[in-house]
Design a protein around this nucleic acid. Structure first.
Lengths: 189, 189
DNA sequence: CTACATGGTGAAGCATCATTCACGTTATGG
DNA sequence: CCATAACGTGAATGATGCTTCACCATGTAG
């Protein structure tokens, strides 16, 4: 269903190079890097990019979706640790804090984080990964509330809201302060 | 010091038209509107824009700085009302709330709000207006703390930080929720 | 009323980009 | 080793946008 033909050897290699290069370039310069620049970084010609992706938007989406998985992995590890005795609230704040710091110098994850909670109706791949995040973070939130660390009315949407407003271009001290202020509001009384 | 020559009549008229049109266009479409579009909206030719502003950036800055004044006015009115008996904390939250809602459909004020607290070393005009905001909001913060509504360690920089991370592209309910969560954290215990 | 500085015009110059395509290359099955 | 489908190439195309400039128009001082 996915692959009628196995994809030629060099084609597969180039595709991987393109993904890697695109990821690096977008991470560093944001989604507005030119196709030329991505091609150069990948060591291929522009035309090759279009042999693998119909247009720039699809390439960017592919890259963002892929690094989206990073977030899902992190979230699942949080749930994992929680099941081994770590306090749920600590895992949640750790997650938030890590994402915030990553987003500060990683445009790809920044795009991924602000895509969370948005309706990516068009991109089923994103839909799937978001489900992973949801299934990890949802239980974590409920546990944190049961354990009494997190205010009872806090929802997953609230978390996504926070992720979408992370102060990416602030200095580390300001970011830390931002998180601290918010956390005060999230703590159960 | 400011005007060696009084500026010709039609020139003054056009300058005003340009500012108005630029403001409207930037407010609606963001700072990335083309000079062509601004010129069209102002009813002048592109070249005329450059007779009044050396380049696009300077025009945008002028517009943003001007609508910056809106924020300063609002802040000063808050201080005014406070001095007439209104609770300082209420004025602060009102200010935050109004700015948040404005920013949601006004790209100009959005730019102005996120410029607050940044070091606009190059633009003395912005510097001045920021001083107005600072001198209105600073006392308001201190009063709110003295009256016991605002947490004691809250600073002006914190407020600027919040203003720079306002959730502009979220629906009204999400925005309200965001503010509510935040305010819980800002309230004195 | 006139001279001319000041202001206005918009086509043209440049850059930057995304995207295409006619053509050359190469992996791979037979 | 060959045939050929798959792949790679990069100059060309067309869109968009900022900025400039040679020329025209007009407000205004005298």
């Amino acid at each position: 269903m996915t692959s009628p033909r196995p994809l030629r050897a060099d084609a597969a290699r180039n595709r991987a190079r393109i993904m890697t290069a695109a990821h690096e370039q977008i991470t560093e310069h944001g989604p507005e890097v030119s196709m030329e620049q991505i091609a150069a970084a990948a060591g291929v010609a522009v035309g090759t990019l279009y042999k693998h992706f119909p247009n720039k938007n699809d390439l960017v989406t592919a890259v963002v979706t892929a690094s989206f998985e990073t977030l899902a992995d992190d979230a699942e590890e949080c749930l994992q640790r929680e099941s081994q005795g770590s306090p749920a609230m600590a895992e949640l704040t750790g997650f938030l804090s890590r994402v915030m710091d990553t987003v500060a110098h990683n445009h790809t994850v920044k795009a991924a984080a602000s895509a969370l909670g948005a309706d990516h109706a068009a991109h089923p791949a994103m839909q799937e990964v978001e489900t992973r995040v949801t299934q990890a973070l949802g239980p974590l939130i409920r546990t944190a509330q049961a354990q009494g660390g997190l205010r009872a009315d806090f929802t997953l949407d609230d978390l996504y809201l926070m992720l979408s407003t992370l102060p990416a271009d602030q200095p580390p001290t300001a970011r830390a302060r931002w998180l601290a202020l918010l956390l005060t509001g999230l703590t159960a009384r």
